[in-house]
Design a protein around this nucleic acid. Structure first.
Lengths: 208, 208
DNA sequence: ACCTGAACACCGTTCAAGT
DNA sequence: ACCTGAACACCGTTCAAGT
């Protein structure tokens, strides 16, 4: 019986397919073995254990992502375009975000965009520590937003909280604000607006 | 044998202690039962199942958090102070962040700060949809930053990435930038700076 | 070099049975 | 109303044994 010859790549491919279809939680060694038609223990020979299987999977998926190319004329526009591009690439691989976060590898998610970011920040005239801060601020903001966003989408209706907000809002007597907060956020627009505001602030201000 | 009478509160308290000492992963129904000196199945009678136990735990911890009080004279300073206060409160409860994120309840983390935020944004002169956007931008940025930050701290040395950055940086001929990026980030300072830049951008610009 | 089944030490949850 | 042990269906991992 058994298969002619199992390769590490076959294992990774099957694991990736499992994650794509049913999410990272569905990736158990036993289900993976069933999918491959081998004994559970064979997988261990090829990938070590579940930990390193997930690491390899993250690596694979990050490398699949295309490089992010800046677009636009002003420095702000170009930096924002990098952030938006990264967001688009990551949203196309929703499980990657979860896997990377779970494994404490957020750094990996930046890789496809970081050269572009360094270049653009430099071109915008920032140097040294100021430039490093700007790059990091954009990175944190981008991935942070992604994490919050995906978290929100997973459980769209969060019963408590809205009520309290309404109270606070009506106390300010701004019904338009209340209405806007009651509606679900347009995340694409919110992301672009926040990022624009952040980059503006980073390039503009001297400090204080 | 057994205990005189187990209460739901005792279960929650023991669960909270377990999470405090060994993190959320250590909270298994069986370990909890051992800690309480009861049969595993008794717990189910009091809290339903693991899911709702975690929900109750999140609720409990959020309510423990103090209200965030704004400080400072300018609107920017006051809004930034709310964000920093929220960050401080959450960092004092590191496992809460993980539990909340894992359960898709990010909204809950904002509760202690959202009234203050609405008030300050309103006082800064923003109204309606603009105000709602600003509140949300600050919320996303704060929790997003927290998530990235905690993720980073969990696995401090992330072998790949640094090398690539160095390449890009040396290509720009900015050794000070390279040095700054090679060092670990001062997250407290980075948070404050990013938040200040963001709020500045939000209050200043009309759009585009 | 590669694959196997058996076994170990864990999980969460259900359920019939006790008091 | 509250607690119990037995049982079920899962996990990841190790290990001696096969070819």
């Amino acid at each position: 019986m058994a298969r002619s010859s199992l390769t590490r790549d076959e294992v990774l491919e099957a694991a990736a397919a499992l994650v794509r279809r049913h999410g990272p939680d569905a990736l158990t060694m036993r289900k993976l073995a069933a999918e491959l038609g081998t004994a559970v223990t064979s997988i261990y020979w090829h990938v070590g254990n579940r930990e390193s299987l997930l690491d390899a999977l993250v690596e694979r998926t990050v490398q699949e992502m295309g490089a992010v190319r800046p677009a636009g004329r002003t420095p702000v526009a170009r930096i924002v375009s990098v952030a938006r591009g990264l967001r688009r690439e990551l949203r196309a691989r929703p499980h990657l975000i979860a896997m990377v976060h779970e494994r404490g590898l957020t750094e990996r998610m930046f890789l496809p965009a970081q050269q572009a970011l360094v270049h653009e920040v430099h071109a915008a005239g920032l140097r040294g520590a100021r430039a490093a801060d700007a790059v990091r601020a954009v990175q944190f903001q981008t991935v942070g937003f992604l994490l919050v966003e995906r978290n929100r989408e997973r459980s769209p209706v969060q019963s408590p909280g809205e009520g309290d907000l309404w109270d606070a809002v009506t106390a300010e007597h701004d019904p338009a604000l209340a209405r806007a907060l009651a509606l679900p956020a347009d995340q694409e627009r919110l992301f672009t607006a926040s990022m624009r505001a952040l980059v503006h602030g980073l390039l503009d201000a001297g400090g204080s």
